[in-house]
């Protein structure tokens, strides 16, 4: 085995996203970086995929039959992305809604951010920043309160679940003009992935699904893949994507000014408040799992 920059067995043995299937030219070699390793990959029209450690002879842009590549890494297509692993991965976490036939599924954006994956996950879980960072979109002053919500670490599913989350959103739905509380449910089923369920503006009884799948380039750089699985028959892809790209573009400069870039797991490194319950649970969960990559482990 080649020496890799990541020594964290928990992270090495996970599935990681490396590309949106819709944005990969079929039958051509493409390349990327995962956990400081250079990787090559290819997907054909039939949905066969191969991922390998970059090597001479398979240059980016070359034609290739994925099924014929030898000496490959695990590969899997799920939720519109190609996933791989540098270790021995188990099953990937489920998102049952992805199979519902009336939903739109798309990769909203893949954006490079100069921050650790866990910092970006915390940002995704965080409602308190809506009025300040996503002003007049996801929140607006003076409606700044983060109301009580529930968080649990589900042992059986090994994931964090935050429920009963509500936050005031101006223009909450396409049907009414005023602002209202919007409901959210957050799942963190993977140290570097999170899934958000949010009241659908078109159907009160159902939830839109928005997920971030983070590809760790190294401890302090990521590619954030944003997956949408929404109930929307009106808007063009372009419009839906642009909205999510705006949101993410607002978070990026904040994330890149967070210090230190790796997430400190020492409870005394920063000052949590009640609104940060889900982040506190996330930090504890990472500590319990023994994750060391992308974090500053607590001493002792």
């Amino acid at each position: 085995m080649t020496e890799t920059g990541c020594k964290d067995p928990v992270i090495l043995n996970l599935w990681h996203p490396i590309a949106a299937v819709a944005e990969t030219a079929p039958g051509r070699v493409a390349d990327t970086v995962l956990l400081e390793e250079r990787l090559g990959f290819a997907i054909d029209d039939a949905g066969n995929a191969a991922v390998w450690r970059s090597r001479p002879g398979l240059a980016t842009g070359d034609r290739v039959e994925p099924l014929e590549v030898r000496d490959t890494l695990p590969a899997k297509l799920a939720y519109g992305y190609l996933w791989t692993s540098l270790g021995s991965p188990e099953e990937i976490f489920p998102i049952p809604e992805f199979a519902e036939p009336d939903r739109r599924r798309l990769n909203a954006a893949t954006i490079g951010v100069n921050v650790s994956a866990p910092r970006a996950i915390e940002n995704f879980l965080d409602m308190g920043h809506f009025p300040y960072v996503h002003t007049d979109i996801l929140g607006a002053e003076p409606h700044t309160e983060v109301k009580e919500y529930d968080v649990e670490i589900s042992i059986e599913r090994d994931e964090i679940l935050a429920t009963r989350c509500r936050f005031f959103q101006p223009m909450a739905s396409t049907t009414s003009s005023g602002g209202a509380d919007v409901d959210y449910i957050y799942r963190v089923p993977h140290p570097y992935c999170s899934v958000l369920y949010k009241s659908s503006p078109v159907d009160e009884k159902r939830l839109d699904v928005i997920a971030v799948f983070l590809q760790p380039i190294d401890q302090e750089h990521i590619h954030a893949h944003m997956m949408l699985c929404v109930l929307d028959e009106e808007n063009e892809d372009k419009v839906i994507k642009r909205f999510q790209q705006t949101i993410f573009g607002q978070d990026k400069p904040i994330l890149e000014n967070q210090f230190p870039k790796r997430l400190p797991l020492d409870p005394r490194a920063e000052t949590p408040i009640r609104a940060d319950k889900s982040a506190i649970a996330y930090r504890r969960w990472l500590s319990q799992k023994g994750v060391t990559y992308g974090v500053i482990p607590a001493l002792g």
Partner: peptide
């Protein structure tokens, strides 16, 4: 910029946390 916490001139003490008004 992130969550609007306010810190006072001189003391740098936090005077307001908007998430818990």
């Amino acid at each position: 910029q992130y969550h609007g916490w306010r810190y006072a001139n001189r003391t740098a003490g936090c005077t307001y946390i908007p998430a818990h008004p």
